[in-house]
Design a protein around this nucleic acid. Structure first.
Length: 187
DNA sequence: CCCAGGATTGACT
DNA sequence: GTCAATCCTGGGA
């Protein structure tokens, strides 16, 4: 049976633990979304993390309470959604298997095949309608909703994608063999 | 103040 | 496989 996650302490832990535990849970924004199939962890002493050099105007949410969204603009055109964990750490939500409000997501994504609706951090924010307006907002409760899952999916682990610093760290986690990953895992 | 460089995507060869 | 789009951030001068 599934239940709605309401405990913000779930997130007040190391990002790596949260990143693993989020796999298989369902993430919704205004009712649209699906099952989380890919995450990445960014932590306080991580050169690849936006929080690495301390608090700035952009990354302020990462230094706030756990369980809130950290949304930033990537490459000047995409939004990326993180959930803040223990101080100065966060989990980047990289891909969902779309399940809810498919029509709304298909429309926002321009009629692309379902496999590509939420298969990437920029793609899923576009599909869900998440923007910088959500930076710093609670992810426990409306307009977000996170549903727990009793099932523990078979997990794949690998290096994070698209970074140059600390590129060897194995902090990317995915549901093994999901067709909705942004990229396949090596092994 | 300046400007190199992105936690990406989609189009194209 | 390669590459441009697009714009904001923030480190360094």
């Amino acid at each position: 049976m599934t239940t709605v996650l309401r405990d913000r302490d779930f997130f007040n832990r190391p990002a790596e633990s949260v990143a693993r535990d989020l796999l298989g849970m369902t993430l919704l924004f205004r009712g649209a979304g699906g099952v989380i199939v890919e995450t990445e962890a960014y932590h306080r002493h991580d050169p690849a993390s936006h929080s690495y050099r301390g608090r700035t105007p952009r990354n302020g949410a990462m230094f706030g309470p756990a369980g809130r969204a950290y949304v930033y603009r990537s490459y000047g055109m995409h939004w990326c959604l993180n959930v803040v964990c223990e101080p100065a750490s966060a989990v980047l939500i990289r891909a969902l298997a779309p399940t809810e409000k498919l029509d709304a997501m298909r429309e926002r994504r321009g009629g692309l095949p379902d496999r590509l609706l939420c298969a990437g951090p920029g793609r899923l924010t576009e599909a869900l309608g998440v923007t910088g307006a959500e930076d710093g907002t609670e992810m426990i409760g409306f307009p977000f909703e996170i549903r727990t899952s009793p099932a523990r999916p078979d997990m794949a682990i690998g290096p994070r994608i698209g970074i140059t610093k600390a590129a060897e760290e194995l902090l990317r986690f995915g549901v093994r063999n999901s067709p909705y990953l942004s990229k396949p895992f090596r092994s």
